[in-house]
Amino acid sequence: MTFSLATWNINSVRLREALVLKLLDQECPDVLCLQECKSPVDKMPLEAFAAAGYNHVVARGQKGYNGVAILSKIPMQEAGSHDFASLGHARHIAGKLENGATIHNFYVPAGGDVADRKVNEKFGQKLDYLTEMRDWFRDNRPEKSILVGDLNIAPREDDVWDHKKLLKVVSHTPIEVAHFAETQAAGGWVDVTRQDIPDGRLYSWWSYRAKDWDGADKGRRLDHIWASSDISQSAHSSRVLRSVRGWEKPSDHAPVFASFDL
């Protein structure tokens, strides 16, 4: 079975319901994973998504912040969720497709503005979250699994607009990149996007603060699609749909796509 998958930090699913429906109509991914839904599950516009053909949903929500959801055309059952770092946040949900593939949808904490856990509690929470992800995947080695989401780290030099200038900026600091790499290695995860697009600058997020986000192009690749090593070679057709960042009243993230032959 071949299926397409997209991941997108929507920055309020209720506020941007029309944008989600536009993406579903124009791109028709079989599975769409959303982060930062900022809504309890019972307030998410799931009926509208079902009317668009996405009848299968697993989600965790919170009022006003966090929140993750997986919308699928393909039959899917919930496969659990975990509260990493015991934050009490809706940041992880997993769904299992009818072909046996498990999809993990993550929204890793952003980490605040100061890259020092001694003065910034949020940065410490981010590192702890990644550490617990690492330990969980080490103890529960994933098979036939896909991990997607806003992981809030741009790991490579060409995942940011200026490596040297961002070394002390949260999302690209060496300690975050090291935690990211340990988490990836613990699960044997393969970065599908960079497997398909190995070279060159590639971003999925551009700040709202930039008046001309497209022209300035000071982006970061914060959104990722990984596959467990046993199915990584089945992945293909990766892309970032940059144009979505230019839609009216957009999220500051663009959706990232990949397809799988499983």
Score class of each variant (00 low, 15 high):
V192D: 04
D139N: 13
A154Q: 03
S228I: 08
R220W: 15
A178L: 11
H236W: 05
E182T: 04
S238F: 05
W247T: 10
S251W: 05
K165P: 05
L241H: 10
R239K: 15
D223A: 08
D191F: 08
P142L: 08
S229E: 15
D150Y: 05
V190D: 06
K168N: 13
S251I: 01
W136C: 03
G219T: 11
G246A: 15
N140M: 10
A186I: 09
W161Q: 03
D196I: 10
Y208M: 01
V244K: 01
A154F: 03
L151G: 02
A210L: 10
L147A: 13
A216Y: 11
G200L: 09
A235G: 15
R138T: 13
L202E: 01
R221Y: 00
A216E: 15
K218C: 06
R245D: 13
D214N: 13
K168W: 08
A186D: 07
R156S: 12
K168Q: 08
D199A: 06
L151C: 04
L130W: 12
N140I: 10
G200K: 04
N152H: 06
K165E: 13
R194Y: 00
L241P: 06
T173Q: 00
T173L: 01
I197N: 11
V148L: 12
I197C: 10
V192E: 04
K218Q: 14
R220Y: 09
M133D: 01
W206G: 01
T173V: 00
G215M: 12
A210N: 12
D135Y: 07
S232W: 09
L222M: 00
L222D: 00
S238I: 00
I197Y: 04
L166W: 10
L151W: 11
D223G: 06
I153C: 14
R220G: 03
W161P: 04
L167G: 14
R194W: 00
D139C: 05
S243I: 12
W205S: 10
L241R: 11
D150N: 06
V170D: 05
I197S: 02
W247R: 09
D135L: 12
I231E: 08
G246R: 14
Y203C: 02
W213Y: 12
G246F: 11
R201C: 06
R194P: 00
R201T: 14
S232R: 09
V240S: 02
H163I: 04
V169I: 13
W247K: 05
L166I: 09
Q195L: 10
K164N: 10
V192N: 03
R134N: 08
S234H: 12
W213S: 09
V192R: 02
R156F: 15
R156I: 08
V170M: 09
R239A: 15
E143Y: 07
R201G: 03
A181Q: 14
E143Q: 12
W206D: 01
I153T: 15
A216M: 13
G200H: 07
A186S: 12
K164I: 03
R141E: 14
Q195A: 12
K164S: 06
R221T: 01
S228E: 03
K218H: 14
V160P: 07
R138C: 09
V169S: 15
R221A: 00
R239E: 11
H236I: 00
L151H: 05
D128H: 02
K211M: 06
L147K: 03
L167C: 09
I175H: 04
S228G: 03
P142R: 04
W206R: 04
D230F: 07
K165H: 10
R209Y: 07
S171G: 02
T193A: 08
P155E: 07
